[in-house]
Design a protein around this nucleic acid. Structure first.
Length: 150
DNA sequence: GCCAACGTTGGC
DNA sequence: GCCAACGTTGGC
């Protein structure tokens, strides 16, 4: 079982949105590294930290679960969609997504600030300066360390 | 294949 | 809203 972290801007899609909808296609990822993690790394049942970015208190707010294998992201084919990619085709889709299912909210937000302050997490991609990846793996040990903060 | 210009991400 | 970091694009 692998562990992951996925970022979302709460103004666009928050942990409460996922709780309400129970399950959601994680569309709009347009970064090759993030895509490759979804396509090649994720397996159904993997656990995910749901992270709120670009907001007043960035941090991990909940846990989700990978509900499907990767499949083509339909938004890349829709010219009216903000994530449309004219260079992609249905025969050879460039972008994929996975469905993500709600598991639970954390009792509190584990903030980016406190994770940055923990020496045990200094190796985590999330806390490295300039990190912009929206989908990333989380070590089993880091996963436990973070959950213990809750 | 280099690299400048440009666009985006995301913390602050 | 600012800006640092970083990915992508495209001219050469």
């Amino acid at each position: 079982m692998n562990h992951w972290l996925m970022k979302s801007e709460p103004d666009a899609f928050s942990i409460d949105d996922l709780k309400r909808k129970k399950r959601e296609p994680w569309d709009g990822v347009r970064n090759y590294q993030a895509r490759n993690f979804m396509r090649d790394g994720m397996r159904v049942g993997d656990q995910v930290f749901f992270y709120h970015s670009n907001c007043a208190e960035p941090g991990i707010v909940g846990i989700a679960r990978i509900a499907t294998d990767a499949y083509p992201d339909p938004t890349q084919f829709d010219p009216k969609n903000g994530h449309f990619d004219a260079a992609s085709s249905r025969d050879n889709p460039r972008w994929v997504l996975v469905d993500v299912a709600f598991v639970r909210k954390l009792k509190r937000t584990i903030t980016l600030k406190e994770m940055q302050a923990l020496p045990a997490l200094s190796g985590m991609a999330l806390v490295r300066k300039g990190n912009r990846l929206s989908v990333m793996p989380v070590d089993a040990e880091d996963w436990r360390t973070i959950l213990a903060l809750e």
